[in-house]
Design a binder for these strands. Structure first.
Length: 430
RNA sequence: GGAAGCGUGGCAGAGCGGUUGAAUGCACCGGUCUUGAAAACCGGCAAGGGCGUGAGUCCUUCGUGAGUUCGAAUCUCACCGCUUCCGCCA
């Protein structure tokens, strides 16, 4: 959520920036008329409330003094405007909720350092690490590798549930687990994150806090509880982890606070019917190790660089080539002010594919969640929130399979994962 | 799932229709004292919002929402959460 104050003071500037950078049309007239109505109604309402409070106090005095005549006179005075007060209060809360709806649908404002563009074509590469190795055979993709090993099964997963699910078996399931373990250990031991375990089902308030609701409900899996209430399967650990401090005021001396969390993620993938239908690239369920930080506003961009580096270090350790790009304004997520995507090299696709997305949200989520901090006796201020995948586990598995494949169909285990594989150095077909 | 009880400021804990935004204690901040610290004493200490250049002023908030009332932390209803006992269970 953007700061209402900024919109009040500078609506035209905000609108033109949003149009230019987001292609988002802010309804200036709607805002201005809503705001001016709010102003009038709020001022009237509060005036009447003050009047009522003052008279009520007097009634209290009168009753205490046994002056019943005066008390009933005063009550009559209140009843003269009681109806007007009530209808004013109703109108005000209606206007306020309209304003909230309007505000919560406005995307975040990209940072000035973000390249302006329309689509992923306009993203800017900031670095490329490692060189794709050359193979003296035709490299296969992870589907062929996995199925030939007899350890990857899409058909049975489809039978059990439906499309876009998969089953891993034996050493591949173990490798998947090893990757997640390795990531958790690295981020906790080397990068100073606190490991955290959270619910996989969350309520609507949490999803509002991080910005998935109200606009992106169709991307989520929902579980109805009652007519009123439902839970949602988390689309990313970002949601439960970022919301742990919803409605809280943190001690500024504790910032930055850094969490790492390994969870399954569930996405309905509505609107991507034709895309990545082969293999494990785009599933309804996948594991991810997520990095989340709560930062002082002065340091959040430094923290974004650091966090992105933490994610990248996993691929450096695995010795798998990748490149990092700055997403252009048109390709960024709704809540973000700046995002780096890390794209891993996949020989089977002969392409770099997204494996991590690292973003700064500044105060956008904090404002929705009411997460603030205070230094000493100072004023409260919204924290900045950041997060990034460190990394997507399933896609990392794909990258290992494809980058470490051999001509005979076996797959070598990367050096740093060997300790997690119980002595297995190479995955061989059965 | 059944029964009972409870949700108040950073924490503990009063208040149970009227100058209560809320006693008291702890914590925290400032001061006096002290070589320094501790103790003691004095003072301060919720958040959000409106209007105002400002001093300031007004409104809202005692789990959430609705209601009763001139007035609600206090009464009513619903929901959420927590605790204890019984049942069930990884």
């Amino acid at each position: 959520m953007l700061d209402v104050q900024t919109l009040r003071n500078d609506i035209h500037n905000v609108a033109s920036k949003l149009r230019e950078r987001r292609g988002f049309t802010l309804d200036v007239n709607a805002f201005v008329s809503l705001e001016s109505a709010r102003k009038t109604v709020q001022s009237d309402t509060e005036h009447l409330q003050a009047q009522r409070n003052a008279i009520s106090k007097e009634i209290g005095h009168a009753k205490k003094n046994g002056d019943d005549q005066k008390a009933s006179d005063l009550m009559a005075q209140v009843s003269e405007f009681a109806g007007r007060l009530k209808s004013n209060e109703d109108t005000l809360s209606e206007l306020q909720s309209k304003m909230r709806d309007l505000l919560s649908g406005i995307p975040n404002m990209p940072n000035d350092s973000v390249p302006i563009g329309k689509s992923e074509e306009d993203n800017v590469e900031v670095r490329k690490v490692g060189v794709p190795r050359s193979y003296d055979f035709e490299p296969q993709d992870h589907v062929d590798i996995g199925e030939k090993l007899g350890m990857l099964d899409f058909e049975r997963a489809t039978k059990i549930t439906g499309s876009r699910f998969s089953i891993m078996m034996g050493e591949m399931a173990c490798l998947h687990r090893a990757i997640a373990q390795y990531m958790l250990d690295t981020h906790t031991r080397r990068h100073g994150y606190t490991e955290i375990y959270t619910p996989y089902l969350v309520n609507a308030d949490s999803l509002f806090g991080t910005g998935q609701l109200p606009k992106f409900e169709e991307d989520l899996f929902a579980i109805p509880l009652t007519d009123e209430q439902k839970f949602y399967l988390i689309p990313t650990a970002e949601v439960p982890v970022t919301n742990i401090y919803r409605g809280e005021i943190l001690n500024g001396d504790d910032l930055p606070t850094k969490f790492v969390c390994h969870t399954p993620c569930f996405r309905s993938e509505a609107g991507s019917y034709g895309r990545d239908t082969r293999g494990m690239i785009r599933q309804h369920q996948f594991d991810k190790v997520e990095l989340v930080q709560f930062s002082h506003p002065d340091h959040s961009y430094d923290q974004l660089e650091a966090l992105t580096g933490h994610a990248e270090s996993i691929l450096v350790d695995l010795d798998i080539p990748f490149r990092t790009v700055t997403l252009c304004t048109g390709d960024m997520g709704f809540s973000s002010t700046k995002t780096y995507d890390i794209e891993v090299w996949l020989p089977g696709q002969n392409a770099y594919r997204e494996i991590s997305s690292c973003s700064n949200f500044e105060a956008f989520q904090a404002r929705r969640m009411q997460t603030r901090f205070r230094v000493g006796q100072g004023k409260t201020e919204f924290v900045h929130t950041l997060n990034g995948s460190g990394l997507a586990v399933g896609r990392t598995l794909i990258a290992v399979l494809e980058n470490y494949q051999r001509q005979d169909g076996s797959v070598e285990i990367p050096q740093v994962l060997k300790g997690y594989m119980g002595g297995v150095e190479v995955i061989e077909p059965h």
